[in-house]
Design a protein around this nucleic acid. Structure first.
Lengths: 135, 135
DNA sequence: TGATTCCCTACCAAGCTGGTAGACTTAAAG
DNA sequence: CTTTAAGTCTACCAGCTTGGTAGGGAATCA
């Protein structure tokens, strides 16, 4: 399951996508409109900025805004960033791979099954962008 | 990601599938062969018994064994039992559904996307059984 | 009755989740 | 050049979950 943090991140990103190219948006505005706890949202947006998804401006007239075209930011990227691995097992994760001990990957039925699940999920998540979040 | 508990459960179930119809198997044997901590494994097997997946016999010659034909126990069932929801959001879960507040499901892009992901995953997990776990 | 095996209750450390508090820095407006 | 509006940073916290461990009780078989 996606964490609350991830869900909040998507809400905020959906809002910023609506406001794309309309200048900086206040944290407090996003917080109010999307019903996300203000201080928690601060942390999330900052993290997204450090990850180069968002950019910000300080002082009056400041706020957060998308750094790139929302149609070019994949949903899969955001999930990996905020939530972690998409795969169900470390040994089938593309970006967070870890060998599983005491288990030969070449003859592990679960392993193969989870690769299928991963690929089925990625087929969707790698081909959807922030633009698809807005209604 | 699947918890350690889930991974241990699948290892144990894979072993019991191999030994299907060969009488009870000792917890300690499963623990040794599959390298799962003994006491933790006890808890897991007991839970699987209470969920009607396994059955057990006490005393000498006792142990655990599958209650049903392994070809009839779906992987999805085990995941839901030991790990919880398969869906990425409560509002798209079939077995653990919870309405998401402050979010209209009918016009939520994330919602629709996560339904697709769920269905893609279930297409696999609902059609694989314990039998597919063995090599 | 005594050994064997599962069953049950209780406990625990560490880390994660979902936050909150408050001071600090930067930048624009006046 | 000061005020004020923003984002930034560090720190903290309660409660829950994860991944176990300990030890005795209860059933079964010889």
């Amino acid at each position: 399951m996606l964490s609350k943090k991830s869900q909040y991140a998507f809400k905020a990103l959906a809002y910023l996508t609506e406001k794309y190219n309309q200048g900086p948006v206040l944290i407090s505005e996003i917080s109010k409109k999307k019903k996300v706890p203000l201080k928690f949202l601060e942390n999330i947006l900052l993290e997204l900025k450090k990850a180069d998804i968002l950019d910000s401006k300080k002082g009056k007239g400041g706020g957060y805004f998308l750094k790139k075209d929302p149609a070019k930011v994949k949903v899969a990227t955001i999930i990996r960033l905020v939530n972690g691995p998409i795969a169900m097992l470390p040994c089938v994760s593309l970006y967070f791979y870890e060998r599983c001990k005491n288990c030969d990957e070449k003859k592990c039925g679960l392993h193969d099954m989870m690769i299928e699940v991963r690929d089925a999920s990625l087929a969707i998540l790698e081909n959807r962008t922030l633009k698809d979040l807005a209604l």
